[in-house]
Amino acid sequence: MGWLTAGEGYEVALVEGRVAARATVGRAAGRQLKSLPKGLKDHPEVDRLRRLAQWLDRHATACVAQVDSWMVSSLPVPTELVARVWPDEAWQAALRDLVVVGDDPDEVGFLRDATDAGELRVVNLDGETVRLSPSTVTLPHPVLLPDLEDLREFAAELGVVQRVEQIHRATWTRPTEQAPNATQVSDFSGGRFASRFGLAARATALGYRVSGGYATCQVRDGGLITEASVWIGEPYWDGDTETGALSFSGQDGRSLRLSEVGPVAWSEGMRMAAALYAGRQVEEGRSA
């Protein structure tokens, strides 16, 4: 966006998400000012730019949330859609450098560009830029990436920074040996908090839903929707509380045995439980 006339002797514009001003007359003409002049703070053009900046922030947040949803669910995304939204800076920032997979499972690489013709350009593990034109592309959850450690090492060499946490996302693999009828995981139980309100607020701040006495997250795993739940205390209890066990249920509400939980749902459920537990009170002298 270019500079807009605002009052006598000034122009304003959005610069790095903030309203900036520059003089159009005098010795400082053409030079960006360190702060907005007092007379411009209530100018209509300044107010309009502030509202635009707020909308752009919300848009960028929504793009990241949508791409994160695609990645967590490992949903096939039409390549044409990726190409269509790519010119939008917010979408491009959310998508750029994510690991994508084309029609062939071996077509894996970091997304660097998308053309109007629906062609994707990715950097593979050999360091080569290759062109892919699949009808759909998948942004896999990291627990599904067999070459995750190689991708992490290569990302460090490339200086890759992902807006959507993918390859450096904390992951957990379901143990192969479990009691046949086990339905709960207690690894992150017993994390004490000063109040149930504080624990619920932490869950919400981390992006999880609070329903009744539980913090929950829904995950689409292999075409099935699984809900992971961690007990956080009675809703109207105002005293201290502790994190409870992690459990899983299917789309029909049926409690699942741990052996029935898919790899993505397991990893995301454990990630939620660990993140809640990390905010617990720690006795003085002990490591957090």
Results as ranks from 00 to 15, higher is better:
A155R: 05
F110L: 08
V15C: 01
S229G: 06
E157T: 03
P235V: 00
A6N: 02
L145S: 04
A203C: 05
G269H: 06
P87W: 03
R202N: 06
A182R: 12
D116C: 03
L148Q: 10
G212W: 13
S211K: 13
D68K: 05
R96W: 01
G253R: 09
L148R: 14
V160E: 05
F154K: 08
P142H: 06
A65S: 06
A114V: 01
T226S: 07
S287Y: 14
L276W: 11
S255W: 14
G213A: 14
Q32A: 10
E177Q: 14
Y208E: 06
G279V: 04
G118M: 08
T171Q: 12
G285N: 07
A179H: 09
L56H: 13
E165D: 13
A278V: 06
P180T: 09
R18I: 01
A114E: 01
G191Q: 07
R163S: 11
R202D: 10
L132H: 07
Q166I: 00
N124Q: 12
R163L: 08
W172E: 10
V108D: 03
D126F: 07
L148W: 09
E89M: 11
R220W: 12
E119N: 10
L144C: 01
G191W: 05
S35W: 11
T216Q: 15
P78C: 05
R27H: 13
E242M: 06
V160I: 14
E234L: 11
V77F: 09
A215I: 06
V161C: 04
A6S: 04
A205Q: 10
P37S: 04
E283P: 00
L95C: 01
G212S: 11
H59I: 05
D47G: 05
F154H: 12
A179I: 00
S74P: 00
A156D: 15
L40D: 03
A194H: 12
R271V: 00
W55I: 01
V108A: 08
Q178R: 12
E268Q: 10
T24Q: 02
Q32N: 07
E107A: 12
Q32E: 15
F193H: 13
A20N: 03
L144H: 04
A265D: 07
G212K: 14
D57A: 15
Q92D: 01
T24P: 05
R209K: 11
L95D: 00
V72E: 08
E284V: 12
V108Q: 15
Q218I: 05
E107N: 06
L75H: 09
G239C: 08
A114H: 06
E107C: 08
L111H: 03
Q251R: 14
D147Q: 15
